[in-house]
Design a protein around this nucleic acid. Structure first.
Lengths: 259, 259
DNA sequence: CTGAGTGATTCATATTATTTACCACTAAAT
DNA sequence: ATTTAGTGGTAAATAATATGAATCACTCAG
């Protein structure tokens, strides 16, 4: 009779009450239900509504305060922190990264912003902007030719920053600065996932070059299309990559049963 | 200062230890890690591996036994039930329905089976089969013309059963019988979701008619393509429908904050 | 028939969570 | 400036859940 080894069974992922509360409040923030600056109901009311005890709710609020998602003021109340304003706070962006289902919303948003930035850049790029973009294009090519992942990542980041800078829209520049910083630190996704459907990285390079070329050519329609195609490719790579990772993990578990 | 009403906060979804164990073991079954008939490790070993106490593991195994997913034999051991064999057991199919991430695997599998069935049906349908299919086609048209959701659902089920019957592959007939029964009972998805991107239902009708016409015409390639297109449409409708439902729920929660 | 494994039951103990009471701060009303 | 009613903050008793351990009953291989 075939028998399963005990090692196939992993420790159960069982949350405490406080953890569950943290997750639910974070989800409400991500979903836009709890907006910046609003005051939460009193601890007594929230605890009752959520069906947990006040000490446990307080424990959760403490975690949220540590993550800079809420502000607690003795004798006054509990408030959702200012998370977006002119630019998304790191706390908010890290929250998005933690909540997988929000990630594709973020990507959809970013696609729209980068299409917008590329269109403006094609219209407004100065000679200096264009020179900067051409120089980054050479960096990208060199990084690809040398298969230098780190240089490639840096150049990627430089390109997107340069495009936004070339849009000359101050609000956009501020809004996207934090996004790029966290993308660069790998908070949103492992950049290796971009190799999922583009093993050689050639496609990624071509897309980056097309963005530069269309901005330098002063073609807003082409620049916007290039940005959208690129972000679509990024989204697709991540989705397919995550699915493959998931299938591989399941396959490894199955293999484990016959060891 | 804007304030959120307490009613926006819902009771936290917090599992007991036993519930968490149930979910994890069910996931292992869905993922194919725990296969039919295999013997699980002893309760003592499983409890230790999963990091829970034996009484709590036993509580979980009792739930799984009630759901007919495992068989427990005093003095012998605990076994994964025979869930698939020649046809998927209702227990297995209900398990798939409970585990959302498995649903699209199921749909992918069903797409392949129905494409296979349609191809065979186009090759093997007898005169009686064809007459039956044509009669069902008329039922579908009438149900659509009269906007009769129940008649439409019944005719839909009849069609898929008739196609599989016309394949004259006994294994396939048995395998799909339980699938159709549960689909009919709405275990897998609410059929209303099919109206998400096809408000009038015309597209669905056209696809059903194309399946019938291609089988009656004896064209296996066309029949297979028609089945695949149909199942692709079903998958897409469900996916978009679920996304819309999700967005609507979030929007309702946001509206709730300003009441 | 025996022994070593399995599941089954029960109970004492530990941990987590709830309930309750009271303290300290804040801000609006007087 | 004071008062009051709200808020958050702390602590302890109690309840609920979970763990750990001991023992019983069944099964099957040797």
């Amino acid at each position: 009779m075939p028998m399963i080894a005990a090692s196939v069974f992993e420790p159960v992922d069982h949350d405490s009450v406080a953890d569950a509360v943290v997750r639910q409040i974070e989800t409400m923030i991500v979903d836009g239900i709890l907006k910046d600056g609003v005051r939460l109901p009193s601890e007594r009311e929230m605890a009752e509504a959520m069906g947990v005890s006040r000490p446990k709710l307080r424990e959760a609020l403490q975690v949220l305060e540590t993550r800079k998602l809420v502000t607690v003021r003795h004798g006054d109340g509990t408030f959702v922190a200012e998370l977006t304003g002119r630019a998304m706070s790191p706390a908010m962006l890290e929250l998005f990264a933690r909540h997988g289902e929000a990630f594709f919303d973020y990507l959809e948003y970013r696609c729209e912003q980068e299409a917008f930035a590329s269109r403006l850049a094609a219209q407004r790029a100065t000679r200096i902007d264009k020179e900067r973009l051409e120089a980054i294009k050479e960096d990208l090519k060199r990084a690809w030719a040398e298969d230098d992942a780190e240089a490639s990542r840096d150049a990627d980041f430089d390109l997107h920053s340069a495009v936004v800078d070339a849009s000359h829209n101050v609000t956009l520049i501020h809004m996207m600065a934090a996004v790029y910083d966290l993308t660069r630190r790998g908070v949103f996704y492992n950049r290796d996932l971009l190799r999922t459907i583009d093993g050689s990285g050639r496609k990624l390079l071509d897309q980056h070059c097309e963005i530069v070329d269309s901005i330098v050519a002063g073609d807003p329609v082409r620049a916007e299309a290039a940005a959208r195609a690129h972000l679509h490719f990024v989204g697709e790579s991540i989705r397919v990559g995550q699915e493959q990772d998931f299938r591989e993990r399941r396959a490894r578990m199955r293999v484990k049963t016959v060891e």
